[in-house]
C-alpha cells in the first residue's frame, strides 16, 4: 500500500441529526411525531483518497450538503466519526477545526458568500491574510488564480459588479488559494456556462493530479459529475450507490452498480475503495 492509497478522509457510521426549533416542534406535535429531530444523513461510510475526485449526486434534501459540511469540518456528526489524515475532527475544538479548515480545506459554497466590500482579488486573498503571508505574495497568487479562472480583467471589481458566473469563479479561486488537501464544492458550476464550467472542472482535475488534492463535488448537473473518479448517489440521507464514473454512463436513474474491488481509474490511476461502506 502506497501513501496515496491511505484514505485522506474516513467516514464511519456518520449520522447527523438536527434538533428542531420551536416552529418545527409545533409542526411535529400537530403531525403526531414525538421526537423533535430530523436526521439529515444516517450511517454513512465512505473513504476518500488524496488526488481523488468524488461526485455526490441526489435530489434536494438527500443530505449532500450535510455530508460536505461534515467532511469539511464545518459541522460535527451526531454520531460516528470523520477522520482527516487520521485525526477525528469531532475531537478538535471549534478553534482547532477553524485552523484545520484554513490549513487543509477549500470550500466552494453554492451561494458564493463573497464580501461585497472587497475586490475580487482581496476576496481570493483573504485566507492568505489569516495565514500572515506577505502582501506581494497575496496579490501575486490571487492574480494568478483569477487569471487562470479567466477573470484577469475583473480583478479589481467588487462582487456586485460581477455576474453570477464570475462571482462563482472568484469563490472557487478563494477555495483554491491555499492549495488545500481537500476541496469541497457545492454546485460549483451552477452559475457557469458550459465552457467556463469545463474550465473550472479542468482546474479541479489539475489540482487533484498536481497536488494530490481530494475534491468532493455535490451537484445536480450530470455533466459536471463526469469529472469524478467515483460517484456517490444519495437519497433520504443515505448512500444508495457508489460507482466508478468510468464504468458507467451517468444517467438520471441510479444504477446501484457496485465498484469492483481493486479496479483503477483509467485517468488518475486511483483505486476505488476495496471496501464498500455504503448501505
Amino acid at each position: 500500500m502506497t501513501l496515496t492509497d491511505i484514505p485522506l478522509i474516513q467516514c464511519r457510521n456518520l449520522t447527523r441529526s438536527y434538533t428542531l426549533g420551536s416552529n418545527g416542534r409545533q409542526w411535529l406535535r400537530r403531525s403526531g411525531t414525538k421526537t423533535p429531530t430530523v436526521t439529515a444523513i444516517s450511517d454513512i461510510n465512505i473513504d476518500i483518497k488524496r488526488g481523488e475526485i468524488v461526485g455526490c449526486s441526489g435530489p434536494s434534501g438527500s443530505g449532500k450538503s450535510t455530508l460536505l459540511h461534515l467532511l469539511a469540518g464545518l459541522d460535527t456528526p451526531t454520531s460516528g466519526t470523520v477522520s482527516f489524515d487520521g485525526t477525528d475532527l469531532s475531537s478538535l475544538s471549534e478553534r482547532a477545526r477553524t485552523r484545520h479548515r484554513l490549513d487543509h480545506v477549500g470550500i466552494v459554497f453554492q451561494h458564493f458568500h463573497l464580501l461585497d466590500s472587497l475586490s475580487a482579488r482581496a476576496n481570493v486573498a483573504l485566507p492568505l491574510v489569516e495565514l500572515g503571508r506577505p502582501k506581494s505574495e497575496r496579490r501575486n497568487r490571487a492574480t494568478k488564480l483569477l487569471t487562470a479562472m479567466g477573470l484577469e480583467d475583473r480583478i479589481t471589481h467588487r462582487p456586485p459588479q460581477l455576474s453570477g458566473g464570475e462571482q462563482q469563479r472568484v469563490a472557487i479561486a478563494r477555495a483554491l488559494i491555499t492549495e488545500p488537501d481537500l476541496v469541497v464544492a457545492d454546485e460549483p458550476t451552477g452559475e457557469l456556462d458550459t465552457q467556463t464550467g469545463q474550465r473550472v472542472l479542468t482546474r479541479f482535475r489539475e489540482l487533484a493530479a498536481e497536488l494530490d488534492t481530494a475534491v468532493v463535488i455535490a451537484s445536480h448537473d450530470e455533466p459536471t459529475l463526469k469529472i469524478a473518479d467515483r460517484l456517490v448517489r444519495m437519497r433520504d440521507g443515505e448512500i444508495i450507490d457508489i460507482e466508478s464514473v468510468s464504468e458507467t454512463e451517468i444517467s438520471d436513474q441510479p444504477t446501484h452498480k457496485q465498484p469492483m474491488s481493486g479496479q483503477q481509474h483509467p485517468e488518475t490511476g486511483n483505486k476505488p475503495l476495496n471496501e464498500d461502506y455504503s448501505k
Binding site: 469539511a72 479548515r101 490549513d103 483573504l126 485566507p127
Partner: peptide, 13 residues
C-alpha cells in the same frame, strides 16, 4: 452570512 463564511474558510474568532 458573510461572517459565517469567514469562519468557514478558516478565519479565527
Amino acid at each position: 452570512g458573510r461572517l459565517s463564511t469567514l469562519a468557514a474558510i478558516g478565519m479565527s474568532w
